[in-house]
Design a protein around this nucleic acid. Structure first.
Lengths: 350, 350
DNA sequence: GTAAATAATGATTGCGCAACCATATGTATG
DNA sequence: CATACATATGGTTGCGCAATCATTATTTAC
């Protein structure tokens, strides 16, 4: 192993700190007997290099165990190959299918994801953004369309492709891939009303999107002549516990609902559990409607009616749009607004 | 806003062609009227800079909206401030509390996390590692202690602090923070046996840790004279569906268990659902034991007995150990092996 | 009052890589 | 046979920053 004689420090301390990581293009180039830049090309644009050279380089890379330093590459090329993804939470989340699909597909294209957990707080989102912009991500994905003024301003002026998702609005920052929560609320109201339900109630988290769905529901019901909709609104995160407590609160407030519309399947599970513990039959005594159609909804007993969002599809769409943007950098980019829609899933519970 | 005319740059043309990302230390330095390196110091080691200068720099940073380029900083300082976290899945996962706590605490110390989703596959883990090592993370966190030979070799020779977690073994790569799954299996067996159960059965995912728990259970039962333990082993991911199917399979195979020990609370929920659909009373007709004590366990009806792992605490411990390592780089590092233990939670279901 | 220590700032260098341009070699075209 | 023209490779430069050393005020010690 060639030791580099340095002008000072004759007793160079054994660098046990960084064995493999000390390797550079130059080391590989020496072994392969080509110039460093040829090694770079062989790795990044192999079509520009002759088969013979390619083979030599590949052999050398494998021999010395070289792993390119993406920090250096990114600095030189101004591409980080990083996408920042902001989610409210990762625990038991309705977003996880979407995030997983997104990460998978970005990963296949050589992009890695850095996750920011905002805890449903716009302030947290803002401070996280400050930290993450330092990494110069090639793209940013945000849940929802509500952001602080500074967040919006920074994002807009950053020149980085931004995707807002899991909601819909008229004035997105950049790219929009999502669905209307008001429309979900209205659709649920219409569907349940058509099935004959009249005494509605809501147990919902107080996050922006839950509130929107609730408003949509109330508005549609009101058009159908129903104005009394008792609601229990709680602070996220949504857990079974909130669901159980929610139903209890409704009863103890004197409500006598036929159907409880919940802001998530998890909340609905809590309502189901509470109903079971009170000996209520579902849906005869009490109907329950979920949201999200997580895998569990179909498997519960009784099977939970819900609203399917197909997170994996949404995640895939986002990845596709982003990768498209990355490919045509500089070109004029047509604005992208995709409504991913939703599907009512009619099962036993409502 | 008091502007101080400095000896140079009277016509410093703020180039608005590049949004925010074009700004460098030099731009800030010009505005602040100091040298670039002083700006760097003011941001990274403010204690070395006079209050007056600090103020000038801060004002300039805010004025121009400068955000340091961490790629460049990392290249120069050989610190990425990045921690790679490998998880089998992020969806509805038992790991999410741990990951969230880990990310939170690392984030407070200025470290961001990059997530790798391995899908319970050692090959995927290996290929992801290849991609992620290119980022030169300052630390790596892995679920479990089973890894491919190449993964182990690469990690060991990378010189990067590695944490293996959520399991325990005798020969960790580097740092180990976890608990013994065999011990969990034995403890569950002992506990249920003491409560009087004799006809055991298992519904478990086939992941390495689930199998270990199963083995521990069987071994302890065998010491207590019980040799017949029907098992249903399925391929991850674990969902309610697997739980329902698992119980069905047990019955259709002619088993008549008193208690079903499950590899996760989610599976247990599935078993509960299947039991409910068959009109079985829990625990009178069939007892059910979960694993993980996710928030939902206590809220189910009937409340689910389980094994608590306290993921948040584990995540916090990992962050603490890692940050400690980062602080004392170069010094000799004592090996770290932490057994985080577990707690049996006795509720209604078993 | 001078030497020594401290505090505050600046100048230079190089981290590892890709963009850009320049330079060989061939290979078709008339 | 010369001009164009593609194919393959190398040289040089700079990305934005922090480490290292050098320098200048400012204070302290005796």
């Amino acid at each position: 192993m060639p030791r580099r004689p340095i002008e000072k420090a004759p007793e160079a301390p054994l660098d046990k700190t960084r064995p493999t990581s000390g390797l550079t293009l130059i080391d590989v180039a020496k072994v392969a007997g080509v110039s460093p830049i040829t090694v770079s090309r062989a790795l990044n644009r192999p079509e520009l290099v002759s088969d013979l050279t390619l083979e030599k380089v590949r052999r050398a890379v494998a021999l010395v165990g070289y792993i390119p330093n993406m920090q250096a590459g990114g600095l030189a090329s101004k591409q980080s190959k990083l996408v920042a993804v902001f989610v409210p939470t990762i625990a038991h989340s309705i977003f996880s299918d979407m995030v997983q699909a997104l990460m998978d597909q970005l990963g296949e294209a050589g992009y890695q994801s850095i996750l920011g957990v905002t805890g449903y707080s716009l302030e947290k989102e803002e401070s996280l953004l400050g930290a993450i912009l330092g990494r110069r991500p090639d793209g940013i994905v945000l849940m929802g369309t509500e952001h602080s003024a500074l967040t919006r301003q920074r994002l807009a002026s950053s020149g980085i492709p931004v995707v807002e998702t899991w909601d819909f609005c008229e004035d997105p920052i950049d790219i929009l891939v999502g669905f209307s929560h008001e429309a979900v609320g209205k659709a649920v109201a219409g569907h349940l009303h058509d099935k004959g339900y009249r005494r509605f109630s809501v147990v919902s988290a107080s996050d922006a999107r839950g509130i929107k769905r609730c408003k949509g529901l109330v508005s549609e019901l009101s058009e159908r002549g129903i104005t009394e909709v008792p609601q229990v609104i709680f602070t996220p995160p949504a857990t079974l516990k909130e669901g159980r407590a929610g139903l209890s609160q409704l009863f103890s407030a004197g409500s006598n609902p036929e159907v409880v519309v919940c802001s998530s399947d998890t909340v609905a599970q809590g309502v189901l559990a509470e109903a079971a513990s009170r000996g209520l039959r579902v849906p005869e005594d009490l109907a329950v409607m979920g949201f999200g159609d997580m895998g569990s909804a179909a498997q519960l007993y009784p099977a939970l009616s819900s609203v399917r969002l197909d997170g994996a599809r949404v995640g895939g769409l986002i990845a596709k749009v982003l990768l498209e943007r990355f490919r045509n950098q500089g070109d004029h980019q047509a604005p992208v607004r995709i409504d991913t829609g939703f599907t009512l899933i009619d099962r036993v519970s409502a």
